[in-house]
């Protein structure tokens, strides 16, 4: 917190404390939704939106600067990386003699976790997740910056 923020009379202790409490929970829930997506309600888009909500909450408290500290990368990076990941996952099916976007699955027997099933929809969804989070951050940064002026 900088001094200028501390002097701001519009700050609300209740909101700040509540956001500090739920911020990480909301983020983790977003990631949970991403992984739950294939067989249960969830998926990359919803997960991304929930994770994005965490950042929106944080923005409501700390403004643009706080978001910059929470995510010290240019928001276009997750956006581009996500789009690339999703596209490459779709195209990867070509290498395995499939059609574009055709999905495949692997089952792994890991030592602690037991049998884990992963589908190629997961990296695709991760890409979508990153795009949505990047988009939310970008909107917060650009629109938020203009609104704060």
């Amino acid at each position: 917190m900088t001094t200028s923020e501390r002097a701001d009379p519009s700050r609300s202790v209740v909101l700040e404390t509540a956001v500090r409490l739920v911020f990480h929970t909301v983020l983790v829930f977003g990631v949970y939704l991403l992984f739950a997506g294939h067989n249960q309600p969830g998926g990359g888009f919803v997960g991304g939106l929930v994770a994005g909500c965490a950042f929106v909450l944080r923005y409501a408290v700390t403004g643009r600067e706080g978001i910059g500290r929470a995510v010290p990368v240019d928001p276009v990076l997750p956006l581009g990386a996500g789009l690339l990941l999703a596209g490459v996952t779709g195209a990867a099916a070509w290498l395995l003699d499939g059609q574009f976007l055709e999905s495949g699955k692997v089952e792994l027997d890991l030592p602690v976790l037991g049998v884990v099933k992963a589908t190629s929809a997961l990296p695709f969804d991760t890409g979508v997740f990153l795009v949505v989070v990047g988009l939310v951050l970008l909107v917060l940064r650009t629109l938020g910056a203009e609104a704060e002026q």
């Binding site: 690339l84 596209g87 195209a91």
Partner: peptide
């Protein structure tokens, strides 16, 4: 053709993603 037909859509999208990363 399995690869060729979707290529006009996929190629620009992948390039767009790369371009976002190469923004500087």
């Amino acid at each position: 053709t399995r690869v060729l037909v979707p290529l006009p859509v996929v190629l620009p999208l992948l390039a767009a993603a790369l371009n976002v990363l190469l923004v500087r």
